[in-house]
C-alpha cells in the first residue's frame, strides 16, 4: 500500500512537472517594464504624428473580451483572440493576412491597387488603393496636418484634457519592444463605462504598438489590440504584389474598398454629448446593405438584448463590457460607452 502511494506521488510529480514544462515552453513570458527617459504626453503624440517607421512586419493580436453577443454572421466579433499578420513596405504598400482555421483572407496593396483574396470561395476583389491602406490596423491614421506636429499634438492633448486625464504612465514591453504608455482616464464628471484607455507607443520608432481598453469593474482589459510580434526591416517586394491564382473569380469592388466592420447606417448619424459620454444615434437602414458578401452582412439585431422602454418609446437594450446600445422599435439605434440611462436621455432629446 505504501508502495502504491509512493507510486502515485511519483506519477503525479512527473505529470505536474510536465504541465509546468509545457506551459513554460509554449506560453509567452511576461517581461518587466523597461526603464526609459521621461517624456511629456504632448511630445509623445507629436512624435507619433511624424513617425516614419519604415518597412516592418509583424503579428497583430486582438484579444476581445467585450462581451458582444454572438452573431451568426459575424463570429469574429465574439470573445476570443484573433490574429492578423501584417507586412508594410513603409511606402503605402502592404499586406494583411487574416488566417482562419479553414482558410485565409488576404489584403494586398501595391500602392495603386488593393486586392482582397478570400480562400474559402476563391474570389479576388480589386479596388483602387487609398493611402492609409494596410499596414497599421487598429490605429487611425494621422489626420492632423503633418506640417505642424507639435501644434497639432498640443491641440489634440488640450482637447482630450477637457474630458480626460492624459499622462504618460510608465513603460511597457510590447512584442519585445520598449514602449511608453499613454494613458487616458475619464474625468470624474464623465458618465462612462470605460475606466481607462492605454496606448503603448514604441520608444524608438514612435508608432503605436498596442491599444488597451479597460472597463469599470473589470480587472482584465475588455479589448487589447496590438502587436504580439514586430520586426522592422526591409520586406520582400513580392509580398506587395498580387496575381490572381488559377481558378480564381476576379471581381471589381463597386466602391472604394471598405474594410469589413460595423454596419453602416443609411443616414448620417448624429451625436449627443461630448467626450467619453458621447452617444451616437443612427437610423437603421430599411434594407441591409447586402449586395456584396465582402462588405459583411448586417447582423439581425431584432432578436438580441432585453426589452426596455422609456419616455422615447420602446426598444431593446444590448449591453456589453464597454458599451451599451438601444435599438428602438421605430428603427433608431443609440449607442455609446455609457450606462443605459445616458442613452435613454440622449434618445429623449
Amino acid at each position: 500500500m505504501g508502495k502504491g502511494k509512493r507510486w502515485g506521488l511519483g506519477l503525479a510529480g512527473i505529470v505536474a512537472a510536465g504541465a509546468v514544462a509545457v506551459g513554460v515552453a509554449v506560453a509567452p513570458s511576461a517581461a518587466a517594464a523597461p526603464p526609459l527617459p521621461p517624456v511629456s504626453p504632448e511630445a509623445l503624440v507629436a512624435s507619433v504624428i511624424t513617425a516614419q517607421p519604415g518597412p516592418l512586419n509583424g503579428t497583430v493580436t486582438v484579444d476581445n473580451e467585450l462581451g458582444l453577443p454572438a452573431l451568426p454572421n459575424a463570429p469574429q466579433l465574439g470573445n476570443g483572440t484573433q490574429t492578423a499578420r501584417v507586412w508594410s513596405g513603409g511606402d503605402g504598400k502592404g499586406r494583411v493576412a487574416l488566417p482562419s482555421s479553414d482558410g485565409e483572407r488576404t489584403l494586398v496593396s501595391d500602392g495603386t491597387t488593393r486586392w482582397t483574396y478570400d480562400s474559402t470561395d476563391r474570389t479576388a476583389t480589386k479596388a483602387p488603393a487609398h493611402r492609409d491602406g494596410a499596414g497599421q490596423p487598429g490605429h487611425p491614421g494621422g489626420t492632423d496636418p503633418q506640417t505642424d506636429p507639435a501644434g497639432a499634438a498640443t491641440q489634440l492633448i488640450a482637447d482630450l484634457r477637457r474630458t480626460s486625464t492624459v499622462s504618460v504612465d510608465g513603460t511597457a514591453d510590447v512584442a519585445g519592444r520598449s514602449a511608453y504608455q499613454l494613458v487616458l482616464t475619464p474625468l470624474p464628471t464623465e458618465r462612462t463605462l470605460l475606466r481607462e484607455v492605454r496606448v503603448a507607443v514604441d520608444a524608438e520608432k514612435r508608432i503605436p504598438l498596442q491599444l488597451t481598453v479597460l472597463a469599470t469593474g473589470q480587472p482584465q482589459p475588455a479589448l487589447t489590440i496590438g502587436f504580439s510580434d514586430l520586426t522592422f526591416g526591409p520586406q520582400d517586394p513580392s509580398l506587395f504584389t498580387f496575381t490572381p491564382p488559377p481558378g480564381t473569380t476576379v471581381k471589381d469592388a463597386p466602391a472604394p474598398g471598405q474594410r469589413p466592420g460595423p454596419p453602416v447606417g443609411a443616414q448620417a448619424p448624429k451625436t449627443v454629448g461630448d467626450g467619453w459620454d458621447r452617444v451616437v444615434i443612427a437610423q437603421k437602414p430599411a434594407t441591409p446593405p447586402n449586395q456584396n458578401r465582402d462588405e459583411g452582412d448586417a447582423p439581425d439585431l431584432s432578436r438580441l438584448g432585453t426589452p426596455v422602454s422609456g419616455p422615447w418609446g420602446q426598444g431593446r437594450l444590448i449591453t456589453t463590457a464597454v458599451a451599451t446600445a438601444i435599438v428602438t422599435n421605430d428603427g433608431r439605434i443609440a449607442a455609446g460607452a455609457v450606462p443605459e440611462q445616458v442613452l435613454s436621455e440622449a434618445l429623449g432629446q
Binding site: 488566417p99 485565409e104 488576404t106 483574396y117 480562400s119 488559377p246
Partner: peptide
C-alpha cells in the same frame, strides 16, 4: 493540379 502548382490560402502559387 492547378497547372502543376499549389495555390496557397493566401492566393499565391
Amino acid at each position: 493540379g492547378a497547372q502543376g502548382t499549389l495555390v496557397t490560402l493566401s492566393g499565391t502559387t
